[in-house]
């Protein structure tokens, strides 16, 4: 663990090429590093620093400002329960307590098997479906205690693998073109995810 793999290094270089100044690519590249290792390892951060000609401390300082970037290991499933106002008004605190009991860990902690990290988060902009949560930043709304238990079962059994990639995977769609380069048109490029906000297809 782990410097960027050759493929990810290539992706990182492509990202750098998108910006007038290379440091702008820092956060997108850190997402890639996190996709690779599940969290930001010191080696990974040092590698990114090398790539962008920064000091590792600057990479660490920047990463640590952001909630989504973890500089310590987390579980394969990051369960983020919102308890901000709209969710709180709709029972989110009770849901969080239930989640803690179900997973057997307090918010902020990771299950012993490394499967789940539970965290209490601020509003995730899904308040129309309060109480809500996200798993690896894939959203689930109107979550009852029973829904939660079902969700945990499904995740553990791998039944949601298509919708919920492992922690760290932010965007499964790759940008196809660099700057000002026209690429041949291709048919629809639907990533296949679904949102509870979608109209039925």
């Amino acid at each position: 663990m782990a410097r960027l793999t050759a493929e990810n290094l290539q992706r990182a270089r492509q990202l750098v090429a998108l910006y007038p100044q290379s440091r702008s690519a820092l956060i997108p590249i850190l997402h890639i590093a996190q996709e690779q290792d599940g969290w930001l390892t010191p080696d990974g951060m040092a590698h990114v620093a090398e790539l962008l000609e920064l000091d590792p401390a600057e990479v660490y300082g920047t990463a640590s400002f952001y909630d989504m970037l973890f500089t310590h290991p987390v579980g394969r499933h990051l369960v983020s329960i919102c308890t901000n106002l709209a969710c709180m008004l709709n029972g989110a605190e009770e849901l969080l307590e239930h989640a803690e009991a179900t997973l057997g860990v307090a918010a902020g902690a990771t299950t012993a098997d490394g499967e789940f990290t539970l965290e209490e988060v601020e509003c995730i902009a899904f308040c129309g479906a309060a109480p809500c949560l996200a798993v690896n930043w894939r959203f689930f709304g109107n979550v009852s205690n029973a829904d939660f238990d079902q969700l945990v079962d499904d995740l553990a059994a791998g039944r949601l693998a298509d919708d919920v990639p492992p922690h760290g995977t932010l965007c499964r769609v790759r940008r196809r073109v660099g700057l000002t380069a026209g690429a041949p048109a291709e048919a629809g490029d639907d990533p296949g995810g679904r949102s509870p906000q979608d109209a039925p297809a």
Partner: peptide, 30 residues
């Protein structure tokens, strides 16, 4: 941190974390 970055060009210390959890620190082991 500004001295390190701006004056010396040795940005080996930085703010880590956010809000009132912000600390000055080095990169682990460096």
């Amino acid at each position: 941190t500004r001295f390190a970055d701006e004056v010396a060009g040795d940005a080996m210390i930085d703010f880590i974390g956010r809000a009132d959890g912000t600390e000055v620190n080095i990169f682990p082991e460096r």
